[in-house]
Amino acid sequence: MMDGFFASEVMRDALWPALLIAVVASTVSVMVLAHRLSFLTVGVAHASLAGLGLAAVTGLPLLPMASLVAVSVALLLPWMPTGKGIHNDAASGMLFSGSMALGVLLLAGADRQQVDIFGLLFGNILLISQQDISYLMLISCGVMVAVAWAARVWWSIAFDATTAEANGVPVQRYRLLLYAVVGLTVILCVKLAGVVLTTGLMVLPAAIAWFWGRSLWSLWWVSMVAAITGVFGGLMVSYAADWPAGATIVMMLCLLFCGSWGTQWLMQRDRRSQI
């Protein structure tokens, strides 16, 4: 199966971009869980449909338009009137449903031949073009530079935002940067897993790492290993069984999560029985 997988030109072309997305998504994933932004990823992923709709109507490039809308929606979140009793989850819900409705309306008016709706919703990494790869590389570099620059501060805000602010950290500015980075990473994942399954890539790697990590660094490494395993394994299985790649990758990550959960449960049971 391995020989056939690597002999397939489509799989070979998809593997490296998919692994790149896995590395970036798993890196940002730990921040998503640490800052409790899982629902933001759902919101931004669905909001990207408005960008895709705009691209379909205007004829402008798809991924840059989706990125623009995703980042805009992510940055709008802190400006929502949360002081009036509308909390972040409700604000995310309103933003994503509004943007998605806009996307649906725009796509309804677009030329159906030009829009790969199934690809948008569930991902189409196997049909990735050279132009898409270049754009994904560009976003990935931007995201990783931002993470390298701001990660420590993001950790300190996630751990204790009040003390970070008391230490002179401009907390709100760093949060905005994080939202923008999450928005861009969501667009990477939309290419791999589609609007509907993107949250799986943004949440599951870190959720798996949460079972095993004992420090911030270990959290990161475990998350990355989990994402790479899920993406590589998912692509292999999708090739062998002829299943959709995005869904298979997310299912693989779900299995890794369940495996981690079960193993931890067994380990805890053993520890309890030794007491």
């Binding site: 640490a34 420590r152 751990f159 204790d160 009040t162 003390t163 970070a164 420090s215 959290l219």
Partner: peptide, 20 residues
């Protein structure tokens, strides 16, 4: 500030907390 304010489930070592 008050003890309850930090993230309750973040896997982090004592060394990492103090380093912050």
């Amino acid at each position: 500030h008050q003890l309850q304010a930090q993230h309750p489930s973040l896997p982090i070592t004592v060394e990492e907390v103090v380093a912050m």
